[in-house]
Design a protein around this nucleic acid. Structure first.
Lengths: 155, 155
DNA sequence: TATAATCCCGATAATGTCACTAAGGATTAT
DNA sequence: ATAATCCTTAGTGACATTATCGGGATTATA
């Protein structure tokens, strides 16, 4: 239960945008909020962070809204999660970037295990992109470049 | 950073007890607190929970203290962690025992990923027991049954 | 029987994070 | 001008975490 609501909401928001497709007009915050079942006032902060992280961009004024800043295949789940969760290690002594020292010498055999958990977690999140997630969701979105010569198998 | 200090302390405490070996007398709380660098008053609560979970047992009175309730090989890290962390899924919709429903239909493709993370985490924690951890810590503890014919080293 | 060492238990408090609300400002198409 | 949209910051209540403290229960020993 370490994925916060904010992270959950953010990943849902990105997924909702992918599923909405790359239509002409951007997607309004109120529409994203509806489709993801996230409180709009809270989603505002989240979209702001996503924009700051370069994952989405925004357009203001009437008919404004949000667009993805990259094709869905290039947005990994890890990237979105990182924006909101910070360190993915389960414990402070096992982070990749700035591990805290163990106060107990022998505890470093435990640290190895925490590092294993960290690495497994990161590997999974890095292996999934939002094009894949949209497909699995039975999504409307299809990468046009993949439909070049032969039609892909159905189902 | 989802492993709480309590869980961290508990795993260190169990490791400390394994490293101390199965000497004649039980291990005092104050001694465990010293070796693990855990506040004694807080460790009291933790040992109480470990006892409630059947992982250690206690003896009262002078020369009292704590003993492991099982051989270290039989105590997995998962078992200790479970006592203090509850659900190991990263998000409420992905628990094994009582998953909450997704408020967003399409989000279930995300749920599959959270379940992958959950399963990988549990698999790692289940694969490690405290005998192994003690060995890796360069620990004093050795399983006597593995040293059948030759006499064990002194010290 | 008295003492002291140990475990046992419940109350409480400080701190911080989370999840959200609210209010007003900035931008821009019409 | 107006209205629709995004933008930013401040504030807040609920809750979990991380302890601390005081006294009670048990028991080996003198």
């Amino acid at each position: 239960m370490w994925i916060t609501a904010k992270t959950d909401y953010a990943t849902r928001a990105v997924l909702a945008m992918v599923l909405a497709g790359e239509g002409g007009h951007p997607m309004r915050l109120s529409e994203i909020a509806e489709r993801t079942a996230v409180p709009p006032s809270y989603l505002e902060q989240i979209m702001s962070q996503l924009r700051g992280a370069g994952i989405v961009r925004s357009e203001r004024g009437p008919a404004g809204g949000y667009r993805l800043n990259h094709p869905p295949q290039e947005i990994t789940l890890e990237r979105v999660v990182r924006v909101f969760q910070g360190q993915l290690a389960p414990i402070a002594c096992a982070t990749r970037s700035s591990p805290e020292p163990c106060p107990m010498d022998a505890a470093c055999s435990l640290r190895e295990v925490w590092q294993e958990v960290r690495d497994a977690t990161i590997a999974i999140l890095e292996s999934v992109d939002f094009a894949t997630l949209a497909e699995r969701a039975g999504g409307a979105w299809v990468d046009p470049s993949l439909l070049a010569p032969a039609p892909p198998a159905t189902g």
